[in-house]
Amino acid sequence: MFEARLNAATTLKKVLDAIKDLLNEATFDCSDAGIQLQAMDNSHVSLVSLTLRSDGFDKFRCDRNLSMGMNLGSMSKILKCANNEDTVTMKAQDNADTVTFMFESQNHEKVSDYEMKLMNLDQEHLGIPETDYSCVVRMPAMEFARICRDLSQFGESVIICCTKEGVKFSASGDVGSANIKLAQTSSVDKEEEAVTIEMQEPVSLTFACRYLNAFTKATPLSNQVQLSMSADVPLVVEYRIPDLGHIRYYLAPKIEE
């Protein structure tokens, strides 16, 4: 028996919004530790890794490890039927071929349930190596989303250049060129507004705007985003989901042939 409950459906809606543009379908691996999802996007250039810890749920029970292949378009249709404040419970029997989403209104007067067919998906089991990154930047998630949106008007790629002074985002194309520099903040009242840089050595890497923009769909989940970069290895864009887990996106840098 698997059962996981969150007191507000809005969290699950935001998680789904953060992955559904990159993945058509995905396997949710459930264990007593929580829910894990790991999948390459359709074009095999980026990887999504989602962790929702069991202790972050309002109720969590998973008697036996369970892999649930879900069509994210169908899941999205179902979650649209929930109000943000509804309690959401996901339930499945062991070896089931369906999962049930149950939504309950705050006053307990409306209860709805939606059963969705599960899919058998070919899963790639990929290992994520431990990596010491040359630069780790933490910055407001909204600011990062804004920068990616603004720069994608100028070119298909963004160059991220990080030194101990700050981080620079650049793009160029037919219109002209654009540069946005962020300095490390010296002092801020609110931690979520800080820009911090941990640098071992400077890096300058180029990434596809299209993917960075897709990653910023996770912005509503977190105040801050963390960018971890080293030469010739995938960038990690991490959003921490308060008290519940995290979502990490990996994207290979573009390399001149």
Binding site: H44, V45, S46, G127, A208, V233, Y250, A252, K254, I255
Partner: peptide
């Protein structure tokens, strides 16, 4: 594609 190759090399198949 080079990007796909980088991803493949980095995430070792288990």
């Amino acid at each position: 594609q080079l990007e796909q190759l980088i991803m493949k090399n980095y995430f070792l198949h288990q």
